[in-house]
């Protein structure tokens, strides 16, 4: 029983990590209808920049984080200027392919700028088992708990940002209807820079958490692939969907890995989440929090 709880808890924690990446996807998709495949590489790029600033320039942690945030905002601005601006009104698939191109560019640029060796990321997040639960016989990483806490704060921050600020309202308007938003004088270009910046910062948080856990290396960009089933489960446009979906996938995956994996030779985490999401969709095609769609002709 203790073992089951332990597995579930560690699944929940891993799920939070997935949620963080999925959140970045959702923000961009909501505001611009772009399926940003580069979200995972953005997390890698952010983590690489952070480590690079700390190692090569001996920045203290707080300054390195601020520096990275500035870099991510500059990147968002650049992406809007060079890429998005010229792709307005293209088919979604074209924009999707463009973000794959972007992923290539960031991947190569990150390697050239900061080197492609595996790097340790230590910004002072507590490591090791969490004492209180360890006394109860359950092993939970302090780091994962910290990640969960950070994710919660981030979500609250985003909720306030979307609900209470002027930019947040504009964002929601754009998400609802591009044309209508334009007609009341909202600048689409600015909105895109803002939303890509926010996603870049979310990517940084995800990058810090994953990087602290298993080092900063190329495989970090692959967490994007883990976040995708979360999206079909939770819906491409739902923030709560991303959070809850991430938890479900995290727990389901860990339980399956432990109880079902050994039967079929292990390493099932690559596809299990997808199958889980697909099975779920058979019963609820509109996703976790979506409304039933009434099609009109």
């Amino acid at each position: 029983m203790m073992f089951f709880i332990e597995v579930t808890l560690s699944g929940l924690m891993a799920g939070v990590m997935y949620s963080l990446v999925a959140l970045g996807f959702v923000l961009i998709f909501k505001a611009s209808g772009i399926f940003n495949f580069a979200q995972g590489v953005m997390a890698l790029f952010a983590a690489l920049t952070l480590v690079g600033l700390m190692e090569k320039f001996n920045f203290p942690v707080w300054l390195a984080i601020i520096g990275t945030i500035v870099v991510m905002i500059a990147l968002a601005w650049l992406i809007e200027r060079v890429m998005l601006r010229h792709l307005v009104n293209q088919e979604p698939i074209i924009l999707f392919m463009a973000t794959i191109g972007l992923a290539y560019v960031l991947e190569g640029a990150g390697d050239i700028l900061w080197g492609s060796d595996v790097k340790l990321l230590d910004i002072g997040i507590p490591q090791g088992a969490w004492g209180w639960l360890w006394d109860q016989g359950i092993y939970v990483e302090k780091l994962e708990l910290f990640a969960a806490g950070t994710a919660a704060i981030l979500v609250i921050f985003l909720a306030v940002f979307f609900q209470k600020t002027r930019v947040g309202r504009a964002l929601r308007a754009v998400a609802d209807d591009h044309q209508a938003a334009l007609s009341v004088g909202i600048s689409l270009n600015t909105i895109w820079v803002v939303v890509w910046s926010v996603s870049g910062i979310v990517a940084l948080v995800a990058g810090i958490m994953w990087g602290s856990k298993s080092g900063v290396q190329f495989s970090l960009s692959l967490i994007a692939l883990k976040a995708l089933p979360v999206l079909i489960l939770g819906g491409f446009t739902s923030v709560p969907g991303a959070i809850v979906g991430g938890m479900i996938i995290g727990v389901g995956e860990k339980l399956a890995e432990v109880y079902f994996g050994p039967m079929v030779g292990g390493a099932i985490e690559n596809w299990f989440a997808y199958m889980l999401a697909l099975a779920f969709l058979l019963f609820r095609p509109q996703g976790l929090f979506g409304d039933k769609i009434i099609e009109r002709v």
Partner: peptide
């Protein structure tokens, strides 16, 4: 190469 491929695609 990978950067250029990305840039060319975009």
């Amino acid at each position: 190469e990978i950067i250029t491929v990305g840039v060319l695609i975009i």
